[in-house]
Design a protein around this nucleic acid. Structure first.
Length: 473
RNA sequence: GGCCCUGUCGUCUAGAGGACUAGGACACCGGCCCUUCAAGCCGGAGACACGGGUUCGAAUCCCGUCAGGGUCACCA
């Protein structure tokens, strides 16, 4: 039985890269009728916050990536928070100590830092020199008397290690180049590389799918698996997602967390579709897939092994496609209500539905609907005095006389009315449309004018035009 | 600096030695539609990092160079 896991540390919001890692783990598990596990790696006491865990869980659920076992669901391999598994790590550490494969280290962080800098300065790789490996009992006592608490290091066996990564293929490493990693901190909390191994083993994880940045950790982890006498899982290191400047994605690159993207007006179906296509592609020339359509197609053969730069424009296009072609109007309305929309009253539900119907073919983000909503509901229009369009007044004075007589019953009748007006006044379409739109919204572009008029209604249309005419006499 | 990973249009990618005049999508440019702005439809431009091999034949295999990324924490 295939078992995969997504193991975020709750030290921040769910990142687009993390979301994709979760997605791939989810897809692979589902494809193989396996289980997908959510494990919280909260061994960093300083930075881990329960709020972040909640946010990550919320974002994952919003995306439609659901797990079979996790901190909020019972399972046979729990608990699913590392902070609740401390006893296990300690007993596993003891096994290593008994085998002579882990040793106490009394070096302080400051001492290690000094040594590291020295090595780097001499252009040497910063590797721990094992100075604490053969400490006598007396030396240890002295350190303890000084008030030092030991951390534990894993004794790396020097050899040529080979393993197969499901995406990169055969990987060879000379382990003598690896520093003995600290596996248990002096505060009694395990370190990532240790807790991860212990949990992957005890949770029966068969496939570890994670970002390329963990490739170097893998050799350490396999070594620990072997030292414990456990069989390591299969590893798949998926390429990283890079910012447009080809560096690691970070805050300074703008919206990169799922929450931010959600607040920008992206819809989960589109987001999932887009991130699935970053680093993976199906055989067909197709761009639009629902998560359920991807599951049977998903395989490691089509995961790329080079990083992908993420492109907000394409993400927007996919969002636009879902808004205009895929999602039902009711679903979009639901998302909009969930979205930040000020002064919304349930009595305007009908209006919202109409806006979605009329505007979906133009909208790229949910925010586009909200803007139209505001345009229609808000009668306080602030015309930018800088805009030199006061000359609309004379035309508008003529147009309004025709406008009063137009039948606002349907979009078609409005269209006809406008055409009639335009012909009577011997004007171009633009010369009729632009002034009306500007008087109504203080903008020169947007939703189709007849639709705008229909949604605002004749009364308000006439009032707004009068108001405009009063300002620009 | 050591080690590891990677290099196809600006970006995401198709490509598993001959089907490649290198295909698709976003963005870009042009046209059509509508005598508004868009959307939509049609078309255009645009890439195998470089240099050596191997082979009858290389985007595809090998080596080197260059370039990018990752990593070397009592962070994960």
């Amino acid at each position: 039985m295939v078992r995969t896991r997504f193991a975020p540390s709750p030290t921040g919001q769910l990142h687009i890269g993390g979301a994709r890692t979760a997605l791939f783990n989810f897809l692979f598990a589902k494809k193989n009728n396996g289980k997908f596990i959510l494990r919280i790696e909260d061994t960093d006491l300083e930075r881990s916050k329960i709020e972040f865990e909640k946010m990550i869980i919320e974002d994952l659920k919003w995306l439609g990536i659901n797990w079979d076992e996790g901190p909020d669901i019972s399972g046979n391999y729990g608990p699913y928070r590392q902070s609740e598994r401390l006893e296990l790590y300690r007993s596993e550490l003891k096994k290593l100590i008994d085998k002579g494969l882990a040793y106490e280290c009394y070096c302080t962080e400051e001492e290690l830092e000094v040594q590291r800098k020295l090595q780097l300065k001499e252009k040497k790789p910063p590797i721990y020199d094992r100075r604490c490996l053969n400490l006598t009992k007396k030396q240890k006592e002295e350190y303890i008397n000084q008030g030092r608490r030991p951390s534990f290091r894993f004794l790396v066996p020097y050899k040529n290690l080979e393993y197969t990564d499901l995406i990169h293929g055969l990987i060879k490493i000379d382990t003598s180049l690896i520093s003995d990693p600290i596996i248990m901190k002096s505060n009694g909390i395990p370190t990532y590389n240790f807790a991860c191994v212990v949990d992957d083993y005890y949770m029966n994880i068969t496939h570890v799918i994670r970002g390329d940045e963990h490739l170097d950790n893998t050799s350490r982890q396999i070594l620990i698996f072997e030292a414990l006498g456990y069989k390591p899982p299969f590893y798949s290191h998926i390429p990283m997602i890079l910012a447009p400047d080809r560096t690691k994605l970070s805050k300074r690159h703008g919206a990169t967390s799922v929450k931010e993207l959600k607040d920008l007006g992206f819809v989960p179906e589109a987001l999932v579709n887009y991130i699935a296509l970053l680093g993976w592609s199906p055989k067909e020339n197709r761009e639009i897939f629902s998560i359920d359509e991807i599951i049977p197609k998903f395989d490691f053969d089509h995961i790329l092994d080079h990083p992908a730069v993420y492109d907000m424009e394409k993400m927007k296009w996919i969002n636009h496609y879902y808004l205009s072609n895929i999602l039902p109007v009711s679903k979009i309305v639901e998302y909009i209500k969930d979205f930040k929309i000020e002064n919304f009253q349930d009595s305007n539900m009908d209006l919202l539905y109409k806006i979605v119907e009329f505007e979906r073919n133009r909208a790229y983000l949910l925010n586009d609907f909200v803007q139209v909503y505001d345009l229609i509901v808000n009668d306080e229009i602030s015309y930018d005095s800088e805009v030199p369009y006061n000359d609309f007044s004379s035309i508008l004075n003529k147009i309004k006389d025709y406008l009063v007589n137009i039948d606002f019953g349907s979009i078609e009748s409005i269209k006809e009315g406008l055409k009639f007006t335009q012909k009577e006044l011997n004007l171009k379409t633009a010369d009729v449309y632009k002034p009306i739109r500007f008087a109504l919204t203080a903008k020169l572009e947007g939703i189709e004018l007849p639709k705008l008029l229909y949604l605002i209604g004749k009364d308000k249309v006439m009032k707004r035009i009068e108001k405009y005419l009063n300002i620009y006499v």
